[in-house]
């Protein structure tokens, strides 16, 4: 049977202003990984990446990014076809939870010198390089929406949100970008 067509929640959107661009990130495999201390070594090995153990930290290796969201919670993001669930399926005898969120979340890339200013229109966090350096990530808020914010480069951030919030988050960032 022909596979059903996939429709990205932000399909076709793009914004380019001087000093700032907004772009939907391509579809990705995502996993919510929940596990206690005792399971981490085995999971590290299965993923081929050391899960970050410190608040706000992230780690990347082999096309995978692991974002610390809570003391027993990570968001794993990988390119389509990475087969995340399969890598963890073989693990037995340890307690953990892996739940596919590839379609629950979507992401926006915001890039440019004014990116911090646009985000600061709705995010109450200190986004200075000292407080939120490259590699930092955190769940937080943008206006009335919850987001996961990750700094990928000095002037580039990834904004993850639930798919039905994507329209609001996109429009908020556009409004903020025009005001920044």
């Amino acid at each position: 049977m022909a596979e059903a067509a996939r429709i990205h929640p932000l399909a076709g959107r793009r914004l380019a202003l001087p000093g700032l661009s907004l772009e939907p990130c391509p579809p990705a495999e995502r996993l919510s990984l929940r596990a206690g201390e005792d399971a981490l070594a085995a999971i590290d090995e299965a993923l081929g990446l050391a899960l970050p153990r410190r608040p706000m930290a992230s780690a990347t290796a082999g096309g995978l990014a692991a974002l610390w969201l809570g003391p027993d919670e990570w968001l794993i993001v990988a390119d389509e076809g990475a087969g995340l669930a399969g890598r963890l399926a073989a693990l037995t005898g340890i307690a953990f939870s892996a739940v596919d969120l590839s379609h629950r979340n979507t992401a926006i890339s915001i890039d440019g010198d004014k990116a911090v200013l646009a985000l600061a229109a709705g995010c109450p966090r200190d986004l200075s390089p000292a407080a939120f350096p490259v590699g930092a990530c955190s769940r937080t808020v943008l206006g009335k929406a919850e987001i996961v914010l990750a700094r990928e480069a000095p002037a580039r951030f990834r904004v993850e949100c639930w798919r039905s919030f994507a329209d609001y988050v996109w429009n908020y960032l556009v409004d903020a970008a025009k005001s920044a």
Partner: peptide
């Protein structure tokens, strides 16, 4: 609860 943070 740090509901929009670590969730704890």
């Amino acid at each position: 609860r740090h509901i929009h943070g670590c969730g704890r």
